[in-house]
Design a protein around this nucleic acid. Structure first.
Lengths: 240, 240
DNA sequence: ACAAAAGTGTTTACCATACACCCATGC
DNA sequence: GCATGGGTGTATGGTAAACACTTTTGT
């Protein structure tokens, strides 16, 4: 540390980490990537993947690197955005560690290999985390809760749902993303209309894909729009 | 620093600061609080208020303290939320400083006194900042841009606009907030209907207030709702 | 032919917009 | 009375929800 240190005993340097809430949709489940910690503290407990930010990298670059190191995932294929900073002085028993939480969303990914600091990495269904099955380390329960809320709301007013689909995708696949994350059935025909009437949401490829049974489905790619107007609100669902 | 330091030359401790984008509506202008820096680097240049996070405080507490110290504002009256972390390794010429940006919104506030690190503090109209009148220090231009976008969008789907009004307020005052921040006239009667039909947005007091001229206006307080559904979208305005 | 999923059409009810109009106050 | 802003009523057009119906494939 250098001599421009603020001359006050009230200020101290901190360690800065990034933590990742990585989500994917597999089947009819929203999954989050967890690791089993290979180091103290919280050794052996489940946690979100993450690690220290290095000297010459931005926070975003650090998140990409940890994505690679701890989860073996190439982040260039994913949607990655910052969620926020968590800096309670007591959140880490070792001392002051400020963590920057990132949200990563991607299509159904291969089961990841364990990383350096992690004994193993695995996908956990979000739905059964609430039941105190496995308490996450640090303040990761709070981070995960915030991440989930962010995903659910971003689905409404941005085109982020396409990040869960491998390009190209069918409208049914896209609809399934909404249904899984909102936990609510959507009317296929109305969903279709909404998506296609929102300019820039998806872009037709002209190709088709054969489902296991049934009529072939048209294939689409992500459009160039990010903000949806009007937003794709989850109304009352089918329940009126 | 203690001996649990990760044994790698690639990792280093960082200084952590909070920076504040404090907005208010005065007359027909959206204003942001700036300081003139009293210390190097960027001595004499305008910047967002902020400072180092102290040992035993949370990030949120740090933001409240800086609000008080640098701007002389009691943060308990304001809406304060985290905007995000900015950690480019080159954002501060002194070395690695990660800053957590906060967004603060409040009713028309008294002109603040200068703080410890600031020569003076003043309200600057947001509208004339774009013109390179005064380049802000550090990456504060980017933070301010992000803060503005956040405010404009939060206005649509949360009840945050009430944070700009002193309790109790009239619906005209609330409408003016939207008009100033969106830069768009709104139909008074339709605005009224939208707000009153959104349960929990505002709560009538039964009191009235006499405007300079015209019929008395009913007074309201903030309701208990935070998310607005449906959101209060800025449509085409008056231009159809 | 039948099942299953994609995709189209149509009805209906609701709601936002736009704007006309009335109300309460100070001067 | 008149100006000014607060507040109410209402016709109209657009659109979302619900659902019937058609299309295209595999078996």
């Amino acid at each position: 540390m250098e001599d421009w240190l603020k001359a006050s005993t009230e200020v101290e340097a901190s360690w800065v980490t990034v933590d990742l809430a990585i989500f994917t949709v597999r089947g009819d489940q929203l999954m989050v990537l967890l690791i089993e910690r290979g180091l103290e503290p919280f050794l052996g407990q489940p946690a979100l993947p993450g690690g220290y930010v290095q000297k010459r990298e931005t926070l975003h670059e650090g998140a990409l690197r940890e994505l690679k190191e701890e989860a073996g995932i190439d982040g260039r294929q994913l949607h990655l955005e910052q969620l926020g900073a968590y800096g309670d002085p007591l959140r880490d028993p070792r001392g002051r560690v400020v963590t920057i939480a990132y949200l990563a969303l991607g299509p159904d990914l291969p089961t990841p290999v364990g990383g350096t600091d992690a004994r193993r990495a695995y996908w956990a269904p979000v739905s059964q985390l609430g039941s105190g099955a496995a308490q996450l380390a640090f303040d990761h329960p709070a981070i995960l809760t915030d991440a989930l809320e962010e995903v659910r709301r971003k689905l409404e007013y941005t085109a982020v749902a396409t990040a869960f689909c491998r390009d190209p995708f069918t409208l049914s696949e896209l609809r399934t993303v909404y249904e899984v994350i909102w936990g609510q059935q959507l009317d296929p025909s109305n969903f279709r209309r909404k998506v296609l009437n929102t300019s820039g949401f998806v872009r037709p490829t002209g190709e088709q894909r054969l489902p296991p049974t049934g009529r072939p489905a048209a294939l689409y790619r992500r459009g160039n729009a990010w903000l949806l107007s009007p937003p794709l609100l989850r109304g009352t669902g089918h329940t009126t």
